[in-house]
Design a protein around this nucleic acid. Structure first.
Lengths: 228, 228
DNA sequence: AGTGTGTGTCACATATGTGTCAAGCAGCCG
DNA sequence: CGGCTGCTTGACACATATGTGACACACACT
């Protein structure tokens, strides 16, 4: 699953440059040429990161950022502000609105790419790293290995994918439907109850060498991975 | 220190394919999409090897090669030319551009990797490890020999390449498709299940003188070489 | 041609994982 | 305290993935 980046930038040349560089580094991208369009696209599909121009037609960047923060489903979506000005006031306001980082134009693409990686690593490590650690659980995608407190844990394919999915957003609660979509795929039809069974199996496996239950059941909502 | 390879190739797909394969074999890479860029990158950091496309935008490959030879610091830098046609290959040989080897497109990646190793071994023997050791298994590429706990182990050519491939990235899980691509070559068509048979043969050979199974089966994902 | 080695494919045996169900529990609320 | 609802879990039939011996064929070498 590639990281998906929304580029909200009205200058076409800049937007295309960003798209080119991001796609070369393995990101999926979409471009919104103005604030309205950005909001629409945010509703359609929540990206993993937003590159947000400060001066955006229709709805200014700072306002888009504020709206992103005010909606629960995008409340901690990473945002990098692109600004032409270097004045202190803008920086402060930008960071104040909840941008995770800002870059002043003109920027070096390598620097921007580095910041994109840095922000994503901080907020969504599982998207970038092969090896992810949450609490005392370590998942290594390259070796298909799960460890807890140094002990190897054997998981079946489905349990592995399930854990991998949870680890994308530690703490976040997923409904059975979301899990079916994300882990099984939207095309297969299985009973929602099946998720329960697999969560049970994952729990058993993860607790087989001792330790607390790392998965939280949220009654009538779904399941989530404990973060601490 | 990893060998550093400059890939001067304008077709993005080809360049990425090369990068992927080279990095998988433990090389560090950089891509130059045209002749100018190649010259710039050559100035920035002298690589250990150049893969040079014959038809390169701005400055053609053959000219880049000539300039490489004319500068003292890169005068005997290994160069492998990539050409689309056999006639061009003949011309390269005839023109005495100073390329150390040439490969005609379309090429088999395994063949190209073998040539890269061969050229580097000839020019920079210290850069290439001929003897690799993982756990109690020692693979010697020069003598095509495998030993385990001091005992000689006989492997057929395919089993040898397979083990050699695994040993590039111990622990990492390879799918049957990846193994077919990397060991058999992307151009041949064989059944994916054939991999199973060869893994079985490799296992039998490696365990013939005792010892545990050094290959791990990862259900519904592939195989990997055990690291410990 | 004759021999030996290696290869890819198949068929069948085995191992492992999967989805569903149903009985039993656990939380919640009047 | 019931009673409702939603969650957990063991059993099980079934589905899939992997291991492996046999075999025919392709070479290389003599």
């Amino acid at each position: 699953m590639k990281p998906f980046v929304l580029i909200a930038e009205d200058e076409k040349a800049v937007a295309e440059l960003l798209r080119y560089n991001l796609e070369r580094e393995g990101y999926e991208t979409t471009i919104a040429p103005d604030g309205d369009e950005a909001m629409i696209q945010l509703d359609e599909r929540v990206p993993d990161l937003v590159l947000l121009d400060w001066m955006l037609p229709k709805v200014p960047g700072i306002e888009v950022c504020r709206r992103i923060r005010s909606k629960p489903e995008t409340a901690n979506l990473p945002v990098i502000m692109l600004t032409a000005r270097t004045e202190e006031a803008d920086r402060i306001r930008g960071l104040d609105t909840g941008a995770d980082d800002y870059v002043t134009k003109p920027f070096s693409t390598t620097e921007l790419m580095a910041r994109v990686r840095a922000v994503l690593r901080r907020i969504r490590p599982a998207l970038i790293e092969d090896k992810v650690m949450v609490g005392d659980i370590v998942v290594d995608r390259t070796t298909h290995t799960v460890m807890r407190n140094g002990e190897d844990i054997h998981l079946g394919p489905t349990e592995f994918r399930l854990l991998d999915y949870f680890i994308q957003h530690p703490g976040r609660v997923f409904s059975r439907e979301q899990l079916l979509d994300g882990v099984w795929g939207s095309d297969v039809y299985v009973e929602a109850r099946t998720v329960d069974v697999h969560v049970g199996r994952l729990r058993k496996a993860l607790m087989s060498k001792g330790g607390d239950d790392p998965i939280r059941t949220v009654r009538s909502a779904g399941y989530s991975l404990r973060t601490n």
